[in-house]
Design a protein around this nucleic acid. Structure first.
Length: 954
RNA sequence: GCGGAUGUGGCGUAAUUGGUAGCCGCGCUAGACUUAGGAUCUAGUUCCUCACGGAGUGGGGGUUCGAGUCCCCCCAUCCGCACCA
């Protein structure tokens, strides 16, 4: 018997469980460190090898930190609410809670086999009432707060009410307003608010979706078409935090690419909002703000001039405006369109509004639009400018209206060319040099060069011109410096069952939160998981779903006629509700009095290391940052950013194998190397489990599927070689690798090490089992270091030799450095080199193996624990101290043989750090090897590099 | 289109961060020990060349005594956003 992981691994897993080795306390004299994984959604398919990649990396780091003397929080839980369980419920009638419970059980079994050091006593599940109580609680806090622009933080809505009562520009008529009107107004300020907004409606899923849940007009889950629809929905005012979300990125230790993804998503752009007066008097509701616009001389009151506001990032090009464009949804269209254009415009608007998102996105390059017949006045040039309508201007961004500068914006350029509108150059790369835009093939969009043909800014550099124009319009009182964000508020309602119920009831049409003491508001049982016949969300089926205000409890809907019983909200919260604050709950997961205690958060602060996929860059990672900033504002979280360092583990793709069936003979399969022409064969996916190192197991192939029972093969060297391709890991391509199978065959330690050995954690890589044997061999070799031929444990108490010490200390240094920089693949290589070296030295000395057991424990905890106990320890290796290396043992011989290149010699010698050139040369000349190489001749030139290198030109 | 990355043997990758390119592993070749081996061990394996030699980190320039690494210009692949004014 050799290295028997089947015996070792369950033994120590049991030991850790019984000893509660991974239990973490909230107080300790040790420094704290928080390592977190993105918790999984427990899907029915179970874990595949991609999931544990990040978990293994974080587990290694957590174990390492623990060995380095930190008190490490390393929890795990489940993001248990979500669509798939509910879709399954619709099909089968099985309650999502049951499906979820089963899936969690399976996940837990799979995770346990890999030997993670999670503190399972802290497990959280988002669907657990003790957990979602605090999700609901946070929602109520969001509802009861608004964002104070002056203080740049969330404040209680009651403070805003007080301001309004004392007179405030934002609510001049507050004291005469009705209660309903007041509530309506406050909705415009609450951080969680109810509003009619255009939403992404997915008919197939029967729910609205957030922007990050829609890609290319299709739902991320399921890939169903999504349409724009105006609906009354709950939203979170995340846009209030847009600036802080951008700023906060400076403080965190994330990759540049992920920070950039978030910056793009938030989409901050600086520019100006400018009012353009309308040329013809109309019955227009939007009016020029007060100011001293000269053009309005003669009018009694400037603010009676009809006008509309646009947003531009290029105020310097205002002299180049040749037309204006409104989005089809713009309210001004109806008011300004001239009678003769009315039909044409109405037809266009109807057409544009009815286009699906998908059509619109697919036909981005198609130019469409219509002239309204109305004109605006350029406030700086007093020119008359035609106003058009086009769907290339979006309702949701800026003011839904633009000034078009075709010479310097590619979209305006395309529009102008299509409708034959004038193009006027107002920016030039060189001062005073212009050309005829009619000859241009594209617009000149770059923000560089000088203003031309531009009145008082002519000759200025673009940047200066921008500032000057903004100053001017601010002085004229017709505009101001503005910052716009692409980020939209997060739609928070889902017309779904399997999610957190909103703690909201409707009293006379007004939303009211249920009292905090009554939380959690439990998800009711329902008979059917589909929408109701009247189109209500599934919660409409719930009988007992009304709020009794007097008795403060949920009662039957039939009692709603009663004066104190009101309907409850029928939507539920989206997936990101539960996952936005879970990392805080882990700090104090069983607290029934609070989300988490002040002591707990005061001790742990925030997550030091967060590991998870980059696909959450525009979803979870934005929402969680927002959620945390809000909790920070109201004094719960103590750090503004939740995740200090973040590592994105790369996606693991599948590596599919193919057999090639001859087109002329359906039973003939040709080995890859023998195929002359790929057109003669049909590649067929073959289960990767019957292929080893691309060699097909022919017998198992014949048994795999009945139609292959009579298969014949053209073999090369007696083997059938399969083709391969990198594809997404999926059942249909027979390339899914289940970690359980590998644990069964090679053991958890081998799986862990191999997943790390595959390459850098952050890099996307295909799963490939071809190298796992090498790691497995390492473990067998490692085991043999301290076992004799009869598998008896066998160590020596002799003092290690210099060579052995060098191997050990090199390993300690390299592994320590590698872990610190999250380079786990190189650590694995280092262990292999170490084992090879020790095997060559036949070293089985206690003094070497003991530190080695600790060193390898983060990577291969089972074999480390086994060795540790074989060495006579009774405590877990997890409570050991990380070994230190001693530079003395690393010092090379002070001289390496010189290498000649192009007539030059290079000598490598060890020098003190502050060594001068003269000292270095003197030391060099003392070396016998130097004298031998230069044969006593004086070299032409000695080049000293202040490190340890000297080049000599002979 | 904009933004971010990446590019090294047959394959996964490494390179003390500007210092002998190819560590470690897979695969492959030869050999040893074995009744056998999908076990173990030894040697070899970037390419061209019998060899001597030469070429070589996507391509082209540059900085440097010295470049996979730094700078500039291309090319290719991957990812994110995409009519955001």
């Amino acid at each position: 018997m050799e290295y028997n992981f089947r015996e070792i691994e369950p033994k120590w897993q049991r030991f850790w469980r019984e000893q509660k080795t991974y239990r973490v306390e909230n107080n300790s004299s040790k420094p704290h460190y928080y390592v977190l994984d993105m918790f999984p959604y427990p899907s029915g398919a179970g874990l595949h090898v991609g999931h544990p990649l990040g978990y293994i990396a974080s587990d290694i780091y957590a174990r390492y930190k623990r060995l380095r003397g930190f008190n490490v929080l390393h929890p795990m839980g489940y993001d248990a609410y979500g669509l798939p369980a509910e879709q399954y419920a619709i099909q089968t009638g099985q309650h999502p809670a049951i499906t979820t419970e089963q899936n969690i059980k399976r996940y837990r079994e799979q995770l346990d086999k890999i030997g993670f050091c999670f503190d399972w006593d802290r497990e959280v599940r988002t669907c657990d009432p003790d957990y979602y109580k605090w999700t609901q609680w946070t929602f109520i806090q969001l509802y009861n707060h608004y964002y104070d622009e002056e203080l740049q933080k969330a404040r209680p809505i009651s403070e805003l009410v007080k301001k309004f009562e004392n007179g405030d520009d934002r609510a001049p008529k507050w004291n005469t307003m009705s209660e309903a009107e007041r509530q309506q107004l406050l909705m415009d300020y609450r951080l969680a608010y109810l509003a009619d907004i255009p939403v992404n409606w997915c008919a197939e899923l029967g729910t609205v979706l957030a922007n990050d849940e829609v890609v290319g007009g299709l739902s991320v889950r399921g890939g169903y078409p999504v349409e724009r629809k105006l609906m009354r929905q709950w939203s979170l005012r995340i846009t209030a935090y847009a600036q802080r979300l951008v700023d906060g990125l400076e403080q965190v230790d994330w990759t540049d690419s992920l920070k950039e993804i978030q910056r793009n998503w938030i989409g901050r752009s600086e520019g100006a909002a400018v009012w353009f007066p309308l040329d013809s008097p109309t019955d227009c509701k939007s009016l020029m703000p007060d100011g001293n616009l000269e053009d309005c001389k003669g009018k009694e009151n400037r603010s009676s001039v009809p006008a509309f506001e646009i947003f531009t990032t290029r105020p310097d090009t205002i002299f180049g405006v040749t037309f204006m464009v409104l989005c089809p949804e713009h309210e001004l269209i109806e008011q300004i369109t001239t009678p003769e254009k009315r039909d044409e415009v109405a037809a266009y608007v109807t057409w544009a509004k009815n286009r699906s998102e998908r059509e619109r996105q697919a036909e981005v390059k198609k130019v469409s639009g219509v002239f309204t017949g109305a004109y605006a006045i350029n406030p700086l040039t007093e020119e008359k400018i035609p106003i058009w309508v086009s769907d290339y201007v979006l309702a949701g961004y800026g003011t839904g209206a633009i000034m078009a500068v075709p010479a310097h914006d590619s979209r305006d350029f395309a529009f102008a060319r299509h409708f034959n509108l004038p193009i006027r150059q107002v920016v030039s790369l060189e001062k005073d040099v212009t050309s005829d835009p009619a000859t241009w093939s594209e617009s000149m969009d770059a923000k560089t060069g000088y203003a031309v043909n531009s009145g008082f800014i002519t000759g200025m550099k673009v940047k200066e011109a921008m500032a000057t124009v903004i100053d001017k319009i601010e002085e004229m009182g017709i505009g101001r410096r503005t910052i716009n964000f692409r980020l939209r508020d997060a739609i928070f309602s889902r017309q779904r069952y399997w999610g957190e119920p909103f703690p909201i009831y409707y009293k006379d049409g007004n939303a009211c939160p249920i009292p905090e003491e009554c939380l959690p508001l439990l998800l009711p049982e329902i008979s059917e998981y589909k929408p109701t016949a009247t189109g209500e969300p599934p919660l409409g089926h719930a009988e007992k779903w009304a709020w009794d205000e007097t008795n403060r409890k949920v009662v039957d809907k039939k009692l709603i006629d009663n004066k104190s019983v009101f309907p409850l909200e029928l939507s539920t919260m989206p997936g990101f509700a539960g996952s936005s604050g879970y990392y805080l709950r882990y700090m104090d997961p069983r607290n029934n009095e609070a989300y988490f205690s002040k002591e707990a958060v005061g001790y742990w602060q925030n997550v030091d290391l967060y590991v998870g996929g980059a696909e959450h860059g525009t979803g979870h990672l934005i929402y969680a940052r927002f959620w945390n900033k809000f909790l920070f504002d109201i004094g719960l979280a103590v750090k503004e950013e939740p995740f200090q360092k973040l590592i994105n583990q790369g996606m693991i793709q599948g590596r599919s194998n193919f057999v090639y069936r001859s087109k002329s003979d359906n039973n003939l399969f040709i080995s890859k190397g023998l195929i002359k022409n790929m057109d003669d064969v049909t590649p067929i996916h073959v289960d990767i489990n019957i292929v080893d190192n691309d060699i097909l197991d022919i017998d198992r192939f014949r048994l795999w599927r009945p139609e292959f029972a009579d298969a014949r093969f053209e073999l090369e060297d007696g083997k059938y070689v399969c083709g391969w391709e990198i594809e997404k890991m999926s059942k249909s391509m027979f390339n899914v690798q289940n970690p359980d199978d590998l644990v069964e065959r090679y053991g958890a330690d081998t799986l862990r090490m191999y997943e790390m050995f595959l390459g850098p954690v952050e890099q996307a890589k295909p799963w490939d089992t071809n190298g796992i044997e090498g790691v497995f061999r390492f473990f067998k070799k490692f085991w043999r270091l301290y076992h004799d031929n009869s598998n008896n444990f066998c160590v020596s108490d002799e003092a290690p030799t210099k060579a052995e010490l060098k191997v050990l200390h090199q390993t300690i240094k390299k592994v320590t450095d590698d872990i610190e920089r999250f380079s786990f693949n190189t650590s694995v290589s280092t262990f292999m080199i170490c084992a090879n070296d020790l095997a060559n030295l036949k070293c089985n000395k206690r003094a070497v193996l003991e530190p080695l057991a600790v060193l390898i424990a983060p990577f291969a905890p089972h074999i480390a624990e086994e060795l540790w106990h074989l060495l006579g320890k009774s405590q877990s290796v997890c409570s050991a101290d990380w070994p230190q290396y001693d530079e003395k043992n690393l010092v090379e011989d002070t001289f390496k043989y010189p290498v000649s290149f192009n007539g030059k010699m290079r000598f490598t010698i060890d020098l003190p750090a502050n060594c001068t050139q003269d000292e270095a040369i003197a030391a060099l000349k003392d070396m016998p090897e130097y004298q031998k190489w230069t044969e006593g001749k004086e070299p032409k030139k000695i080049i000293f590099v202040p490190k340890r290198i000297i080049n000599i030109v002979c």
